[in-house]
Simulated assay, not measured.
Amino acid sequence: MLLLRLLQFAFVVLLLYFLVTQLTLPAIKGTRLFPMFDARRRAALDKLNRAREAREVEEVEKEAQSARKPHTGDDDV
């Protein structure tokens, strides 16, 4: 019985969270309702993630390139 009450409470909390974040706040701000379903925002985030991944790959390749350069021996003491 306790588990059922906890599940019921968790469901109510999640429902209230959904209502506040997807309906109430956007309505107050004057933005679109249900922002989690906004395709433009999702597309922009995907593009941003791809750009970040490409930048990370470039940085790793640059580090690998600098590590491959032969040592001249000038640093030896």
Rank of each mutant, 00 (worst) to 15 (best):
L14W: 11
L33S: 02
R50F: 04
L3S: 12
V57P: 00
V12I: 15
M1F: 08
K69A: 15
L6Y: 07
T24W: 12
A44S: 12
V60P: 00
G73R: 03
T72Q: 08
R42G: 03
L2K: 13
E59S: 06
G73E: 02
K62G: 01
R42M: 07
R32D: 14
L3I: 07
E59C: 04
T31W: 01
N49V: 05
K47R: 15
D76V: 15
N49H: 07
Q65V: 01
R42V: 07
A43Q: 08
L15Y: 11
K47F: 08
Y17I: 06
F34H: 03
G73C: 01
V20E: 04
A10K: 13
K29H: 11
D76A: 10
A44D: 10
E59Q: 14
V13P: 01
L3C: 10
L3D: 10
F9E: 10
R41L: 09
A27F: 07
R55A: 08
K69H: 05
V60H: 02
M36S: 11
F34I: 10
L15M: 14
A27L: 09
H71F: 08
L33I: 04
A10S: 15
E59A: 14
Q8C: 13
L48P: 00
A43K: 13
L48W: 08
N49A: 11
L45D: 03
